[in-house]
Computed example of a mutant assay.
Amino acid sequence: MGKRTGGGLLLALLLAGCGGSPAETGPAVMEDPAFETAQQQWRMQRYTELTAADGWTALVGLHWLEHKAHYIGHGPGNGIRLAVGPDKLGMVRRQGDGWTFTPEHGVAASIEGAALTGPVAFRGDHDAAPTRITFDDGKGQLSLIQRGGRAALRVKHADAASRLGFTGLEYWPGGSAWQVHARFLPHPPGRTLPIVDITGLTTAMPNAGAVEFEHGGQHYRIEAIAEPGAPLFLIFADRTSGHGSYPAGRYLDTAAPTADGHVMVDFNHAYNPPCAFTPFATCPLAPPENRLDLRVEAGERAYHPPKENAP
Score class of each variant (00 low, 15 high):
residue 226 A to T: 09
residue 294 L to W: 11
residue 169 L to H: 05
residue 111 I to H: 01
residue 67 H to D: 14
residue 225 I to V: 15
residue 124 G to F: 02
residue 180 V to I: 15
residue 211 V to F: 07
residue 271 Y to L: 12
residue 260 D to Q: 11
residue 224 A to I: 01
residue 113 G to L: 08
residue 51 T to L: 00
residue 38 A to M: 13
residue 61 G to P: 08
residue 192 T to R: 07
residue 130 P to G: 05
residue 189 P to E: 14
residue 253 D to W: 11
residue 195 I to E: 01
residue 175 G to T: 03
residue 252 L to N: 08
residue 144 L to A: 06
residue 308 E to P: 00
residue 283 C to R: 04
residue 22 P to E: 00
residue 107 V to T: 15
residue 219 H to M: 08
residue 257 P to S: 03
residue 141 Q to T: 13
residue 32 D to L: 10
residue 237 A to G: 15
residue 138 G to K: 12
residue 214 E to K: 09
residue 286 A to I: 00
residue 268 N to R: 08
residue 297 E to L: 10
residue 79 G to T: 05
residue 91 M to Y: 02
residue 184 F to E: 00
residue 4 R to A: 14
residue 183 R to T: 14
residue 23 A to N: 02
residue 29 V to F: 08
residue 191 R to A: 10
residue 289 E to A: 15
residue 229 G to L: 10
residue 205 M to C: 13
residue 279 P to K: 07
residue 185 L to V: 12
residue 153 L to C: 08
residue 89 L to K: 00
residue 210 A to L: 09
residue 197 D to L: 06
residue 215 H to Y: 14
residue 200 G to K: 01
residue 267 F to P: 04
residue 127 D to L: 10
residue 6 G to L: 13
residue 40 Q to S: 11
residue 41 Q to C: 12
residue 202 T to G: 00
residue 95 Q to E: 15
residue 38 A to T: 13
residue 84 V to M: 01
residue 239 R to L: 14
residue 134 T to V: 13
residue 230 A to S: 09
residue 28 A to E: 09
residue 59 L to D: 04
residue 47 Y to E: 14
residue 46 R to A: 08
residue 94 R to H: 11
residue 276 A to L: 01
residue 283 C to L: 09
residue 257 P to G: 03
residue 3 K to V: 15
residue 203 T to E: 10
residue 252 L to A: 09
residue 138 G to P: 08
residue 81 R to E: 14
residue 131 T to E: 07
residue 186 P to D: 07
residue 90 G to H: 04
residue 98 G to S: 09
residue 250 R to M: 04
residue 229 G to D: 09
residue 235 I to F: 00
residue 280 F to D: 12
residue 59 L to C: 07
residue 196 V to N: 02
residue 286 A to L: 00
residue 108 A to G: 03
residue 138 G to I: 04
residue 93 R to C: 07
residue 125 D to V: 08
residue 301 R to I: 05
residue 308 E to W: 08
residue 175 G to R: 05
residue 161 A to T: 14
residue 161 A to W: 07
residue 149 G to A: 06
residue 58 A to V: 10
residue 37 T to W: 01
residue 191 R to Q: 15
residue 149 G to C: 01
residue 34 A to D: 11
residue 158 A to W: 02
residue 175 G to K: 03
residue 101 F to P: 04
residue 23 A to D: 05
residue 73 G to L: 09
residue 115 A to M: 11
residue 62 L to Q: 05
residue 224 A to H: 04
residue 136 D to G: 09
residue 296 V to W: 00
residue 170 E to I: 08
residue 20 G to E: 12
residue 166 F to D: 03
residue 237 A to R: 11
residue 98 G to F: 02
residue 261 G to R: 05
residue 197 D to S: 06
residue 32 D to I: 10
residue 195 I to A: 02
residue 189 P to G: 13
residue 48 T to P: 06
residue 175 G to E: 05
residue 194 P to D: 06
residue 19 G to S: 04
residue 264 M to T: 15
residue 131 T to Q: 05
residue 110 S to I: 01
residue 232 L to K: 04
residue 247 P to I: 10
residue 288 P to D: 13
residue 160 A to W: 09
residue 188 P to F: 01
residue 74 H to A: 13
residue 299 G to I: 03
residue 128 A to Q: 15
residue 121 A to E: 14
residue 203 T to F: 00
residue 294 L to A: 07
residue 297 E to M: 09
residue 5 T to Y: 05
residue 27 P to E: 11
residue 28 A to R: 11
